[in-house]
Design a binder for these strands. Structure first.
Lengths: 223, 223
DNA sequence: TAGATTGTTAATCGATTAACAATC
DNA sequence: TAGATTGTTAATCGATTAACAATC
């Protein structure tokens, strides 16, 4: 059907960025853009942009470039932003509530339909336009509402078990914020791990190198 | 000084994961581990692990493997977890507060010393053990306390300007959660962008492919 | 010593970049 | 038509994997 054989992860990771930049261009009233102009804004090579896009089809026009709105719509379709995947969130702690309110699921192909927590004191409290439900009602909810995406904002120790349960209930995709690598074990289940701790450590590494360099220079200056 | 010429980003991104897994092994009371055993747990090849580690030095012992605690300590030192980089957080909305309370900065080489927001109604409220300060006091605070890392949890529109200000005040590193690509513009400034929206779209892409495949199969079955 | 496993070099694989013919 | 810019193939670069000699 589509040219899509199976696209490399490197390409897919860049698609949301294209989508984002094209959205901004559109807002700025830009109608057309060449791969070279886009490459300068987005800090990639024009070659790479053309290669990436051609994984999915010929969206451009020789001698002209790309229609901004058209290209954005095409990428949106590839990403599935026109869909409404039923999504639940497990864990309504600080991070869970922030994710629930901060991320606009509706404009991203997912529709948040339920929030669960094991802390009974949270039950009934409102986050966004949803009430937190007791985790005990999770399985019932799934049977009735058939969510397919779960956002996991729960402690490491609880993650594997909850994920197993949810896979059993037919869930297909996990956006995992727990301090645990959930890549492992299932076929045909999609996992996106967000390791904020790892991300901060990556930054720390950079700072460490930077400041150690400074130390070296100072030492050299003293010699 | 160190073997460190300049290490590729791919290697650096894996270091926090090594650090995390070694921490768990240590907790489980494992003393030694071979690259092969580690590779199975962490889902990488043994070759890659040995290559990665040898960017920084020979931490292992032929015929034996690696001492878990020793290796963990070495990687920790490389990442800078033993440091206390002074860190401020700008933007105490849902996400900012979650980051401030959820991430244990202390165990990650950074020490959170100030939280700022432009919303005066938040001024004085407590997040973790810190009081939110008015953004107007930011420059004074920087002159007195010399933070070098900033966590940005602010709207896209404000990000570039705040970042410019902070660079002017001597800040060296940004952990950027805003919906804006801050890679751009400075030398010797470290930026780690966390695009949660992009991350969710990557997941959505996967779900979209998965469910479209199902549709295809159903269509074929009907034929 | 023999066995195991590293550190490191060489081979392979994949991703990025460059080049250019096709074509709007 | 001439100029511009794509789509696509070929060349390069870097990262991963395999192999093996060094050595604990």
């Amino acid at each position: 059907m589509s040219k899509n054989g199976s696209i490399s992860a490197s390409v897919i990771k860049r698609l949301p960025r294209y989508y984002r930049f094209l959205g901004e261009l559109s807002k700025q009233g830009v109608d057309r853009i060449s791969s070279r102009e886009l490459s300068q804004r987005i800090k990639l090579t024009a070659s790479q942009i053309r290669q990436d896009l051609n994984c999915f089809g010929g969206f451009g026009q020789q001698g002209y470039g790309y229609h901004v709105d058209e290209l954005r719509a095409e990428i949106g379709k590839i990403l599935g932003v026109d869909k409404q995947f039923r999504t639940i969130l497990i864990g309504a702690g600080n991070l869970g509530r922030a994710i629930a309110t901060h991320i606009n699921f509706d404009t991203r192909g997912c529709e948040l339909i339920g929030i669960f927590d094991s802390n009974e004191q949270l039950t009934g409290k409102t986050v966004g336009n949803l009430k937190i439900m007791n985790i005990k009602t999770l399985e019932n909810f799934c049977r009735e509402n058939h969510p397919i995406v779960a956002v996991l904002c729960i402690p490491k120790a609880a993650t594997q078990q909850i994920a197993d349960t949810l896979v059993g209930m037919g869930l297909k995709a996990f956006w995992n914020f727990s301090h645990y690598d959930l890549s492992i074990g299932y076929d045909d289940i999609i996992v996106e791990n967000v390791h904020l701790g790892d991300s901060l450590l990556t930054l720390t590494y950079g700072v460490n190198v930077l400041t150690s360099d400074d130390d070296d220079r100072e030492q050299e200056a003293e010699e």
